[in-house]
Design a protein around this nucleic acid. Structure first.
Lengths: 204, 204
DNA sequence: TTATGGTTTAACTATTTGGTTAACAAAGAT
DNA sequence: ATCTTTGTTAACCAAATAGTTAAACCATAA
């Protein structure tokens, strides 16, 4: 029995508006009324479909995380060499985030506010694991392809170089005294320069 | 005329309590009453000394920024080689942040919430500039000490590698499945491994 | 001693905000 | 047609919260 009655995907419109507002303002800064206005829908409907601010927020959060996890999973668990993984991830990730610039900061901020959220997400099927990546790094080090390096530290370095500029955008714009256009150009350059920077460092 | 009357540094106690609360919860998440409780001081005093939540927040924010700016200035404007700068900055910065773990996230978060804050801070005397650093990178590239690299991108890489793990601590703990103790150990290792990682990449 | 002026407190206010409710609308089932 | 279920709305409520106020407090100077 399909969800009929009137209802032009009200539930979806609410979620979409909630994504906009929550990702820009966070749980504490967001207002239910503002989300309702953004959706052009009566505020009571937010509670009708999602019960509470907390639950609506969690829907947005797990949704956001589900967008990012596959990106990571791909680099961590396919069969290409570390070098190719670094190249692909750097290129793909920066492309992806350029389209969703609020995403990384949103996730990091809300995870800081309530670290217990991680448990809820971890039950997600697509949750990334590091085992394969670590083993692969060790193997390539043994084979003499890579200089000796700890897989976990390399992982931290890769995500730091790729994610940080999008988390700290206003800070970087301020230090470099650049505006949006120049910033985007620099991020475009980073699709290549970051992987070069990493490969230069680890390849024997 | 010294500030006499009773007043056991009430103003300072308020600021200190406000730092704790604002840095953990942000402007939106913090409550004036909670700051008053943390300081053990009547809430009206917060307004007596700082007028409004906004102004108290700004006092905390500029204070926090003034702690970080000199660290950056040092690396950017002393006369040592790029290699030494990277080594010193990495070591000193990670040591410093380990003692103030909420600081980077606080600044980044609030700068995202209100990018205009940067203007207020920029008038600060100790505000870091990149000119000298960029020139120095160019010179060392010309001399053949460093591989060709853009100074601004190198700067982004350095601060990304150093700051990101402290901004995204819960995320990294989650991915690596580690707790506080192991995390601290990894950050301790990074005092050396990050500068090695960078030097390996850029040195000819 | 007492007048002065900065400091402190408890009680209060106005507004914001998450959440509820009761009445109403509309679509499908009977 | 009308009954039932689901969706929608405006008005409302209670709690939270930034900010105010008037009275009390207390150290100092005259």
């Amino acid at each position: 029995m399909a969800k009929t009655n009137k209802n032009h995907d009200t539930e979806g419109q609410i979620l979409s508006a909630a994504e906009n507002i929550f990702q820009k303002k966070g749980m504490d800064g967001a207002r239910m009324q503002e989300i309702a206005d953004e959706a052009g829908i009566n505020k009571a409907m937010l509670h009708y479909y999602y019960r509470s601010k907390q639950l609506l927020f969690e829907a947005v959060f797990t949704n956001a995380f589900s967008l990012l996890a596959p990106q990571l999973n791909k680099i961590l668990n396919d069969d290409s060499s570390i070098e190719d993984k670094v190249k692909n991830f750097t290129h793909n990730y920066i492309s992806f985030i350029s389209k969703h610039p609020y995403l990384p900061n949103f996730i990091i901020q809300e995870l800081n506010r309530n670290p217990k959220f991680f448990e809820k997400i971890q039950r997600n099927a697509a949750f990334p694991t590091l085992e394969k990546f670590k083993n692969q790094v060790n193997q390539e080090v043994e084979k003499g392809i890579l200089k000796p390096i700890n897989g976990e530290q390399l992982f931290i370095n890769i995500i730091s170089l790729n994610i940080f500029p999008f988390v700290a955008t206003p800070l970087i714009k301020g230090f470099l005294k650049i505006e949006n256009k120049a910033f985007k150009k620099m991020m475009e350059e980073r699709k290549v320069s970051v992987s070069e920077f990493i490969i230069n460092s680890i390849k024997k």
